[in-house]
Computed example of a mutant assay.
Amino acid sequence: MPTPRNPPATARTRADAEQAAVRERALDGLPEVDRPTEVSTGDAQTLSTALFARLEKLEKGTPEHAYVRNTLVELNLSLVKFAARRFRNRAEPAEDIVQVGTIGLIKAIDRFETGRQVEFSAFALPTIVGEMKRFFRDTSWAVQVPRRLQELRIELAKAVDTLEQRLGRRPTRAELAAHLHVAEESVAEGEQASNGYVARSLDTPAWDDKSTVTEGTRRLGAEEGAFELIDALESLKPLIAGLDVRDRRILALRFGEELTQAQIGERLGLSQMHISRLLARILDELRTGLLEDARDR
């Protein structure tokens, strides 16, 4: 078999020139990042803000749009690695978890809007973690459940999170049905399908069928709380200790009592938007500290 030849130097030069032209048009004066994955956290945030503004002006499907989008993915891969830390004790290979989380990162990039005045890291992390949890859900069913119902259960879980943030309380079955544009019977079917994911004890009290989303649905895909708390506390203990009293209080209300941003705002006398910005800053500080600690080790 003949050995394949390398393309002529002129062809390579032409291809390089075309790629350089694409980068120049894509960036439109913004600095080019040679090694996006090696950029510091602070610089990555600054560059991401500028690149998102540029991405909104580019037409989807063009080489320029693809270049800026890919650069944003590489700049923010640290978010995926940060999110993957909480699942490092799972049986699945770490590489698979990071790969799945990267899909979530890409989805977050495609959905992000700069006009929301929210830090991208705060916006992206729930999507990244959600994608990882979906991966675990799809491989962790206790009994065989039709794919349609598996997907409906996932959509229900997403809808619950979205409506809780919007309403400040658990949504009713009717509200879930309206949000998903399905019949209430379909919502009930999806809730029932969740039992195929979490095997429940026969001693567990039954719930009211007319209630809002069942406790079984609320627990779907959840990590064992004790193990996750131990892991998080050991990793974050010195970083959390360095926060001021208000920041620690916000963390406790959000992740300890699991209050919504609106509910936290009511407790502290602040607006939901203000709480969102504070949470974004706090999480970013913790993420930066963990990444720096990992690099030091």
Rank of each mutant, 00 (worst) to 15 (best):
V68C: 06
G289L: 08
L279I: 03
Y197E: 14
R86L: 05
K237A: 15
S211I: 07
E224M: 06
S235D: 12
F87C: 08
Q45P: 00
T71F: 11
A108Q: 06
E185D: 14
L58F: 10
R153N: 10
R23M: 08
I230H: 07
R200K: 04
R111Q: 12
E184M: 06
L243S: 05
L270H: 11
Q45R: 13
A222F: 09
L105V: 10
S186M: 13
S48M: 03
A66T: 15
G265E: 01
H179W: 06
G256D: 05
L278E: 14
A26N: 07
V39S: 05
F112G: 12
R169Y: 09
A174L: 07
R147W: 04
D209M: 00
P93C: 01
E92A: 15
S140T: 10
L278P: 01
A252G: 01
E119K: 09
A15Y: 04
G115I: 04
S186Y: 02
P7T: 09
K81I: 11
Q144G: 09
T37C: 08
S211A: 15
P7V: 12
A26Q: 06
P2A: 13
G242Q: 12
A178R: 08
S201R: 00
T288W: 00
L220W: 08
A50G: 01
Q263S: 14
R23Q: 13
F82D: 12
L243Q: 09
Q117G: 07
E131V: 00
A84Y: 03
L268F: 03
V33E: 04
I109S: 05
P238H: 09
E228C: 02
T260V: 07
A15N: 04
E151H: 12
E215R: 04
G101P: 01
E228F: 06
T260E: 01
V98H: 14
D161W: 07
K81A: 13
E32I: 01
L290V: 15
A15R: 12
R35W: 09
D161P: 02
E92Q: 15
A178M: 04
G256Q: 04
G168P: 14
G104T: 09
S201D: 06
P63Y: 03
K60M: 12
S40N: 08
P205E: 00
K133R: 15
R277S: 13
R169V: 04
T260N: 01
E24W: 05
T102A: 03
A44R: 09
N6Y: 06
S186V: 15
V73T: 13
E175C: 07
Y67V: 04
A124L: 03
L279D: 05
S40K: 04
R287W: 01
R148W: 07
Q150M: 13
A178W: 01
E74P: 02
E92S: 14
P205F: 00
M1D: 10
A188P: 07
G115A: 10
E184T: 12
R281L: 10
I103G: 14
L279R: 07
I275M: 05
D296G: 06
F123M: 03
E285H: 09
Q192I: 02
E119S: 12
P36S: 13
